[in-house]
Design a protein around this nucleic acid. Structure first.
Lengths: 143, 143
DNA sequence: CATATAAAGGATAAAAATGTCTTTTAATCT
DNA sequence: AGATTAAAAGACATTTTTATCCTTTATATG
């Protein structure tokens, strides 16, 4: 459903959301390790996320990545779209261009609801909401 | 969600279900064309599906692919599993091994219902049911 | 039986995704 | 200012997925 890359990206951003702050920035390699992602690949993903204002970063000594208040309100779908592209999640299950409610492909009605629900949740949920869940003990951060 | 390969496979099997029969077998290249799949790649996929008793085939003149009565009752999930492997659809959204209802990852509750619903439908639906939909005008075959 | 036909199988190629490494740039600190 | 640190950027390597091609095997038909 999600590419490996966007999984790394989501985990990385979540890790930052929980453990980093402007006064406690975290380096790419220290984010990659707990997530089991290759360090330099993680760095590249964070770079891309930075270009799209999804994470914040500072170079040099005491530098690293963190999320500012605005970053914390990023919708999950944004992260997936930046890494996997806009189409991947939204395209027809059989990759048929003309597929829509009026002209449904054979899988459209079968899995369409599940997919819309899935996408809708990613659209509506922000990083900060997931952090609340973690802090409330409703879910656990990947380690 | 599904790989390109399993999309080709699903479309190919559906095409056979609608247009082929034991007395009217269809060659790989004639299946590939309407589906916009590369002919020899389609042939490979059909071969693999044949090994798993999902499609039937006969070599030689007047040969080709078709679905017998048993093939028609194949659950969609079988096709996806043969082509994409067992794990792809079922693994955790963040690829976390220990993720389950008791120890949910941050996305588990958010998208878990959508995913279970999605997988459940693929498990419960057979090729013949999709064909009924098509014949009833509820959906249209990819052309 | 000989020939033609079409799937099966295997080897190879191209493209995309994932992963690594090196150099450059910007920031901090002495 | 100079040295050091860490992200940014870009080049390169590997792996996986997708695609192509060629040979072999099975089947039908004259």
């Amino acid at each position: 459903m999600l590419s490996n890359s966007s999984k790394y990206a989501l985990k990385g951003v979540l890790y930052l959301a929980v453990y980093a702050s402007e006064s406690n920035k975290i380096m790419a390699k220290d984010i990659a390790e707990p997530i089991n992602a290759p360090a330099s690949y993680m760095a590249k993903l964070l770079q891309e996320l930075g270009r799209h204002d999804i994470v914040s970063s500072v170079k040099g000594p005491n530098g690293g990545f963190y999320l500012d208040e605005k970053n914390m309100e990023t919708q999950l779908i944004k992260i997936v779209e930046v890494i996997d592209g806009e189409q991947r999640l939204r395209s027809c299950m059989l990759s048929i261009r003309e597929c829509d409610a009026d002209n449904p492909c054979p899988l459209h009605d079968l899995v369409g609801d599940a997919k819309s629900f899935f996408v809708k949740n990613l659209e509506e949920t922000t990083i900060s909401q997931l952090v609340s869940d973690i802090e409330d003990g409703k879910s656990t951060l990947p380690l």
